[in-house]
Computed example of a mutant assay.
Amino acid sequence: MTLHGPVTRRGLLKLGAGVAATAALAPAAATAAGAAGRFDLTAPSTSLIWKKALYDETVMQSFTIDNVHGHIYTVQVRNGSGSNAAGHLCLTKLSLTGAILGHMYLQGFGHGVQIGVEPSGAAAYLWTETDGVSDDGSSRGTRLARFKFVNGQTLTTSSTALTKYTLIAGATNTTCAIDPSTDRLIMRYWDGSAFRFAVYALSAVKSGTPEPLHDVAQPSGLGTFQGYAAYGDFAYILTGNAYGDANPAPGNTYVTSLDLRTGQQIQRARSVAGKSLDYREPEGMAIQIVSGAPRLCLGLASGLSGARLASIFYKTELV
């Protein structure tokens, strides 16, 4: 792989356990009751999906959750791409129980480090990196793209189905996530010397008038970057590596909270979610909304090479 949250505190944990089965069978509420507070990264995690196959058999790179229609979208390097530098990706649509509902192929887009989804009527529009360029044996996007999910469709970087966005001139390694509680787009990018997070109103991006609400540096020394999500004023950064001789169980997977207003690192905690998985590489984050309450989700890849599987866990407790 990659180189690279007003609700009672304890009550949310109980709520998360009580609605898990319902959330797996029906679409979640579209918006949170409010985007106040931040997630307690030391709270326990609960499984949403466990060791599910995706459309292709490679490692899940990231995922996002459509809270209106009740779907999960994952992205991974496409089977048979030959080299990660090609930037060819497979997008899989899943139910909330992990059943495959469809797929798309994205040719030359990048590495899929993080993606977002924008529900619109009966449709879902994905937000991804695009116009990937080779970077140290991988591919990294240089712009953002919005496109409608159409099952079975293959898109290239020149497809008319894409709407492309350049939010910061000269930025590279561009990826994005969407905060469903605020309808904001969060873009992570490289400015030539450091990675940063810029926050925009999604409506302003789409209208062609993107003015950043915040723009802060990513904290240094976090480890191998693996994805991010945002809820209200805070971003959550996932880092770590797959299990191995130099990284035995329970591994070095950490989640860090970042105040998007000030750039201050607020909390950092190791995650042992899914610690029994083999391989276990952290991959991607997302926000799920269930009955108005938010969940901070993180992804994990497992399984053998050529038969990788995806698991997703979530935290519910806010402080």
Rank of each mutant, 00 (worst) to 15 (best):
L144T: 05
V319W: 07
H69Q: 07
Y73F: 12
P210Q: 07
T253G: 15
I178Y: 07
A23M: 06
A171R: 03
Y314C: 06
E211N: 15
L126I: 13
G306Y: 00
K164T: 06
R146Y: 02
T42M: 05
D183A: 13
T253P: 12
A161I: 01
I178H: 09
L15Y: 08
G102W: 01
H4M: 05
H214C: 15
A123L: 14
G227D: 06
N173S: 14
G18S: 14
L15H: 14
S47D: 04
T92G: 13
L144Y: 06
K164W: 04
A20V: 09
L89D: 09
V133T: 11
A171E: 05
T154Q: 13
L96I: 00
V68L: 08
T22A: 07
S138T: 01
P180T: 11
T154G: 10
P212S: 13
M1H: 15
K315D: 10
T46I: 00
F109K: 13
Q226N: 03
S193F: 01
G121E: 11
A21V: 08
T2D: 12
Y73T: 02
G284W: 03
Q218E: 15
Q265F: 14
K148M: 13
L202P: 00
F195D: 01
L309D: 02
T175G: 01
R140S: 10
A269I: 11
T97G: 15
S311G: 02
S138G: 02
Q153Y: 12
D136T: 08
T97I: 05
A161P: 00
V216N: 05
T256F: 04
G112E: 05
D66N: 02
T157K: 05
Y254S: 08
G227Q: 05
A230Y: 06
Y200F: 12
L238S: 15
A20F: 05
I266Y: 10
Y254M: 10
L260S: 06
L89F: 02
Y165I: 02
R38P: 00
G170A: 12
T156H: 10
L213D: 06
L296P: 07
P212D: 11
A286Q: 14
A145W: 01
K51G: 10
Q288P: 00
V216E: 07
S47I: 00
A145L: 01
V290K: 04
T160W: 10
A43S: 12
V59L: 04
S62K: 01
V68H: 04
A242P: 11
L309H: 01
S159Q: 05
S271C: 14
S158A: 15
G132D: 13
H111R: 06
K164D: 03
A169P: 09
C176E: 08
E57M: 03
V68N: 08
Q288R: 06
S193G: 08
L3Y: 12
A85S: 14
